[in-house]
């Protein structure tokens, strides 16, 4: 938007340790992959801003500032951004730019209470924004950061509403199918593996396949205008052919390799993302029978 006209200024935003810092690869606009620097909650964000004028022209400005913003963008009806974080530093007072100038900046121990997220209708972004204010049009340069929010599993375990013991479900269609669906727990770290089994108590369906899928459900807004979007992140065949009564089919699904999102509930009262484990049985006539149950995903601190 700001490049429609040729900008008179070139703003370079460099973060400290840009080459050594951990990055996260994200699909950006137009499906291009971009590498974003990874920051943790409470981590200082510091770097330099270098501003060069083009063609050695003098550029007047009414001040230069850098902001660290955290925003939730919803695209329910047009894009609405809502900043939950906004910090700013003045880099320069109004004046003139003639030579390239470099300004250091530092946001010390910034609290970043949410994880970055790019969903279907929702984006939760952290970004640095350099603004060179001018009378005519401001020159702006942004740089997105990626933020992970880690959870200590031990802490979570103590929370009573999220049991970690195994989950066992009796599922069935009367006189047609009766299975026991069992898996190790309902909370998984993103690097975890789902282990479980399906035990067939009654089979009168002519089953062809059985799959597990992981479905991410993103909901935004609040009732009655809530918007829900589901996306199948993982589709994983766990059985080929028709079992008979008494058969047990093992489940083992490594999560680490998939692009999963930790479970967020009511982030800033704006949105939630949840993940459902879905067991799907497909019969010979391609009818699908499924059972969904939510699993809680979290990001575990690396060692």
């Amino acid at each position: 938007m700001s490049f429609i006209f040729k900008s008179p200024l070139d703003i370079e935003l460099r973060l400290d340790g840009e080459d050594s810092r951990e990055t996260v690869e994200q699909k950006g606009l137009k499906g291009r992959k971009e590498k974003l620097l990874l920051y943790k909650d409470g981590e200082t964000v510091k770097g330099q801003v270098t501003i060069r004028t083009r063609d050695n022209k003098r550029v007047e400005h009414t001040g230069i500032k850098i902001q660290l913003l955290g925003s939730i963008e919803t695209s329910n009806d047009g894009i609405v951004a809502d900043n939950f974080l906004s910090m700013a530093h003045e880099l320069a007072s109004p004046g003139e730019l003639r030579h390239p100038e470099t300004f250091a900046f530092e946001f010390r121990n910034v609290e970043k209470q949410y994880e970055s997220y790019r969903g279907i209708n929702i984006k939760l972004r952290y970004y640095l924004k350099v603004t060179v204010s001018r009378k005519s049009a401001d020159v702006i340069r942004e740089k997105e950061l990626w933020v992970y929010q880690y959870e200590d599993p031990h802490e979570q375990a103590e929370q009573p509403e999220t049991p970690t013991s195994s989950v066992k479900m009796d599922v069935g269609i009367e006189d047609c199918l009766h299975i026991e669906f069992e898996y190790s727990k309902n909370r998984y770290s993103l690097k975890d593996v789902i282990v479980g089994r399906i035990y067939f108590l009654l089979v009168r369906l002519k089953i062809k396949h059985m799959e597990l899928s992981l479905i991410r459900r993103e909901s935004s807004g609040s009732p009655p205008n809530q918007l829900n979007e589901s996306e199948t992140v993982v589709k994983f065949e766990i059985m080929d052919g028709a079992p008979v009564r008494g058969e047990t089919i093992p489940i083992r699904l490594f999560l680490g390799g998939f692009d999963l999102t930790p479970t967020y509930k009511d982030v800033n009262k704006k949105f939630s993302t949840r993940t459902f484990l879905s067991l799907v049985l497909i019969d010979e006539d391609a009818r699908r029978y499924f059972k969904q149950s939510e699993i809680i995903l979290y990001r575990e601190k690396n060692e």
Binding site: I238, M239, D240, G241, A242, V244, E247, I249, P250, R252
Partner: peptide, 13 residues
């Protein structure tokens, strides 16, 4: 051995 249970189709299994 355990994982092979997933194939219940006679010929393929």
């Amino acid at each position: 051995m355990e994982m092979c249970r997933g194939v219940q189709h006679p010929i393929r299994g």
